[in-house]
Design a protein around this nucleic acid. Sequence first.
DNA 1: TTGAAAGCGCTAACAC
DNA 2: GTGTTAGCGCTTTCAA
Lengths: 349, 349
Amino acid sequence: MARKAPTIRDVALRAGVSVATASNVVNGNRPVGEESRSKVLEAVAALGYRLNRAASSLRGARSRLIGMVVPDIANVFFGELVRDVEELAEKDGYDLLLVTTSEDPAIERRRIEALVSRRIDGLLVVPSRDDTVAALLNGPDGAFLPPTVLIDRGDPSPGLDTVAADCGAGGYAATRHLIGLGHRDVAVLAHTTQLKNITARVDGYRRALRDCGLDGRERICVGGHSLDTLRGAVELELHRADPPTAIFALTNISALAAIKAARGLGLDIPGDVSIIGFDDFDWMLALRPYLTTVAQPIGDFAACSWRRLIDRINGEGEPPGLRIELPCILKVRESTGPARMRLKTAAAP
Amino acid sequence: MARKAPTIRDVALRAGVSVATASNVVNGNRPVGEESRSKVLEAVAALGYRLNRAASSLRGARSRLIGMVVPDIANVFFGELVRDVEELAEKDGYDLLLVTTSEDPAIERRRIEALVSRRIDGLLVVPSRDDTVAALLNGPDGAFLPPTVLIDRGDPSPGLDTVAADCGAGGYAATRHLIGLGHRDVAVLAHTTQLKNITARVDGYRRALRDCGLDGRERICVGGHSLDTLRGAVELELHRADPPTAIFALTNISALAAIKAARGLGLDIPGDVSIIGFDDFDWMLALRPYLTTVAQPIGDFAACSWRRLIDRINGEGEPPGLRIELPCILKVRESTGPARMRLKTAAAP
DNA sequence: TTGAAAGCGCTAACAC
DNA sequence: GTGTTAGCGCTTTCAA
């Protein structure tokens, strides 16, 4: 426990070579003779030598550290994203510095600055607002961001790449599905209208209504980030004189909220209200009714953003500013069904 | 973008003091005169100076980096744990290096070594086996682990602290609940029997059976880590000539698997089979039937392990080797009900 | 209370 | 292909 960790110098000494050679063997930067190489390797093994990355990154080399920023790691959506990214990162020899923002731009800013002071090689962020990272990039500070890729959210911006789903198409498909089932009163449940990926879903919904001659029948509920406030918003909508016959929930948490609200009011799903969600997780396929949903390709988010990030770090590929949109898939299950002609009035609580 | 980041030297220069003084102001290690202090602070602000942690940790100071190791960050249980820990960490000025093991000891070992080579100040791990970290700590390598706290799993071991739930009591309570409902054929669904926290739940189950004179009626299914294999194990059990009337699923994923298996066989919950799960997440309270479950205090896991880790890092508190057990809470909901006298035979698929 | 100076372990020139 | 050396930015003796 007390033994000091061996340094590259110890390795070189034991192998009878110079530190430069030892270093070159360890991180394969330049070719090394066969004999020296094996002697160094032997010394590394014998001494249990482990590279001190703090030192190497100080010296100017890559830190092999990637910062990852998500609003809430306990949300399965971000959980899966981080898991997939971490797997990719480990394959490429990077470690992940994980940071959480609680959807708060001030915290986000502080956390990103902390990451930058760690000399991260790249940054992957699901921003709390569409413009926060661009603001940082071009801020008065001249904040020194490494190659950065935004995921799921964020405006296109010169220095930034974005990987996201084609939310417009997703919203459109979901709404068409509902209209096809005979629904004419479809409410949308959003947690916010500040995020373009959410408003794109709403736009898809609007477009579908319009295409079907249902203009002016829009019902948009905004419920905030928490399950409880979202639920409250749905209850309000369901208590109206003319409640919707279907609810399109724009996130997985919103879907949970819509379901709980309907349950709480004693409404049958999909008998009284159809519900369609966003994202696709295991629980949606377990308890009844199985949830109809618009699935986003999380694995592809991870793969595309990682590829792009590494290219940028290596100075390869196209210059920054790309936007990559991936398709969503509508999964029709049990929570959506034919519209009732007249929905029974929800009893007052 | 091209401007080089200012160093402590730049700050000292602009403030007209020595680098030592500047350093002392920045991280408050030693008292500094009022005048110097304000000049330094001014310079820091003006230059937008940010401490280079790679350099300071190289020089021997704390890295303020904590390694966190979990089997799968996409599992909500670990997701919540990491979220809670991250929040605590940020408050104390630490960053989290997150690493995932896929329940594989070899990967775990490799990933922990990567963390150690980052000179982390402390390590929080949910190990893939109870003895992996202890092996690392006492290994021939003399692997140089910083203060380490195990969470949820892990044998008590001299150099290691452990924070976990009182799984024996949890298993006991769940089983008593079922027996109280008249069940005499209760199957337990475990993903593994290699982990003590799981076998403790099984022991609680056994103890409850014994206390009720149901010795010898144990049914223990082991289903592996994936939802599909777990489900297969349950189906097998449910297809027996004398299927169980209740299933006690030992993790949240097992619960999902049990539910899907029952559904697939057309069994009503809890009419045909009662199901009780472990852990408590939002989805369990949304779709029907609401799941009866044994909740673990994840927030307390985070708080206790963090407190302990920080104390160890600061050399305070008791010497390592502690085991802290936190109580579980039984939440009775809809998925458990009275036992049927005779369960209808499950139709072959 | 402050400053000067010595490295922490490593990599990148640059020489051989 | 290999060795020598000069720092990277910082904290920390040690002296003043």
